[in-house]
Nucleic acid binder design. Sequence first.
DNA 1: TTGTAGGCGTTATCAA
DNA 2: TTGATAACGCCTACAA
Lengths: 342, 342
Amino acid sequence: MRPTIRDVAKKLNLSITTVSRALDGYDDVAERTRKLVIETAHEMGYAPNRAARQLRRQQTDTIGYIIPSNSAGFADPFFSEFIAGLGDEASAHNYDLLVTTAPPASPDEKAQYERWVQGGKVDGLVVNRVQLDDWRLHYLAEQGIPHVSLERSLTPLDFVGVEVDSYNGFLELMAYLVNQGHSRIAYIGGDPKLKIENDHHAGYQAGLKAAHVAPEPALVTRADLTPEGGYQAAEHLLQLANPPTAIVCVNDLTAIGAMHASHQYGLKVGRDIAIAGFDGIADSAHTQPPLTTLDQPVYTIARQLVTMLLAFITDEPLAERQVKIQPKLLIRESTGGTMPSK
Amino acid sequence: MRPTIRDVAKKLNLSITTVSRALDGYDDVAERTRKLVIETAHEMGYAPNRAARQLRRQQTDTIGYIIPSNSAGFADPFFSEFIAGLGDEASAHNYDLLVTTAPPASPDEKAQYERWVQGGKVDGLVVNRVQLDDWRLHYLAEQGIPHVSLERSLTPLDFVGVEVDSYNGFLELMAYLVNQGHSRIAYIGGDPKLKIENDHHAGYQAGLKAAHVAPEPALVTRADLTPEGGYQAAEHLLQLANPPTAIVCVNDLTAIGAMHASHQYGLKVGRDIAIAGFDGIADSAHTQPPLTTLDQPVYTIARQLVTMLLAFITDEPLAERQVKIQPKLLIRESTGGTMPSK
DNA sequence: TTGTAGGCGTTATCAA
DNA sequence: TTGATAACGCCTACAA
């Protein structure tokens, strides 16, 4: 059995109060006593029981994140980087990170959120892959539980979090492609309910408009944010009577699949066809050819989100309730880019 | 304020005992009463306070996993798949998954483990990226806290978990390469303290031996399991006076970097040089050319681990304390493979 | 500077 | 079938 504060107190012939205060760094404890307490506690391998502390203080020192996983074997490097960022920043503040997975907008997802929120398992939550009208944001606001999100929903809730300006990112990407001489530019998007899909798509459309290119519905298609999805969508595009000369993709994984399909069709990516993605995952620098992409600093964003969430939780003033980040266009060879690929 | 069990009891003019038992499904509660209780509780949005329950029951219904992250912006798809598996299986059993990150064998890692273990924050832990002599396994065994691991350490502790037979996997891979006519086969490994590095390296060596090829120290090099590391290590190999005709890599990310380097050196992967990896990450099917790899079912392994851990925690009999899994050799074009790439 | 005691919300024992 | 009550381990007013 692990020692309790009572055991430590007994051993030192002190009251549990003194032990508790000594360990928590209160200043009304004799320095000599404190030293002794800390040393003994460590010796005995004592650490305060988290459940008891939580119950007493009515807070968990834990934040939660539910991964929106659509499939079983899903594996997007975006998430490992995101989680690493959340975990690092949380533990820097002595907070823990609770994680689970649930398919977006499923009953299971709802049950998970309720379990944590109503059971008081977490002090706050991080949300991403926001949908245009996202029940989670409504629910969390309604429950009055602190939360931050990456991307906002359309509904005018009080939004606290980080936004990536992917609209302007895509605009920039499109301008670059047009400048490279492309006019038949296709788009492989994701689930139309997703906020990012909307932003990316809108940026794509705006890019066409800015270049006075008439949008062509046949060049707009959808996939599921995976390489497989990208592969199939690209296959479809390449089979068109009048195929595109460039494809922009909603994310890097999709682009990787699209590159693969292009190779299968005998096209040399970067010469016969231009392909670009979004995310800036580590792999994108090492694909063949290296992938032009809009890089977003996922790790930094995750840390930023936690910082904001913790300020929220502890009621500290928040410098900015909404942070907007510009993605960075990394031009590489997949669009015939002339800049160094590294 | 969230309602407590007391609020529910008061509303129904019942004792908290009855409410508690009704909700927990005890059979000594009148059916009519139970219905009423469940309904009312749901209506009021009541859910048992987790901290209180944990304190009382002396268990947390939570398992922990500390990601061995070596660098800040690390992002290995292995981990998102692994975490998804852990999370899915855990939540299928109504358990939660606590996650954080810490650099392997760092003081910080130690602090994290202690915080959870001694603070009673988790009922058990999942460990991976095991080192040959891993302090974590010693510590957890010593503390008597349930844990399972992917890969075992050399020290003869009572091991419960999953092992991937990567030794034989590499043996098979080597035989295949030799059969393809290769004799100058290089190896890009990882940290020599890692168990997987040892297994993979041993399999490589054994493969050479089986083919009666004298090992050449210059063809063995190390990296850090990232594409960047693989890139540099491969560069080094390709600059040798007598470069290899094939490179086997400790994992897929390394192989992706090695492919990139080969391209940069004007080599066509799959024709001028063969490259193979290990892991079977989703991307590997979509690299250019698609990557030959030893596929391990990460998601399934993760679920399996949780199943074992929970049996351990609840003291249920464990069918097998040690599960051995064979990786599957996926032959693709990066080794000039003749099998279909999909 | 230190000690006493109450209660956080549950579950579990025992009695009714 | 239901109810009163005692912990679980900790923190914190308040008293000494």
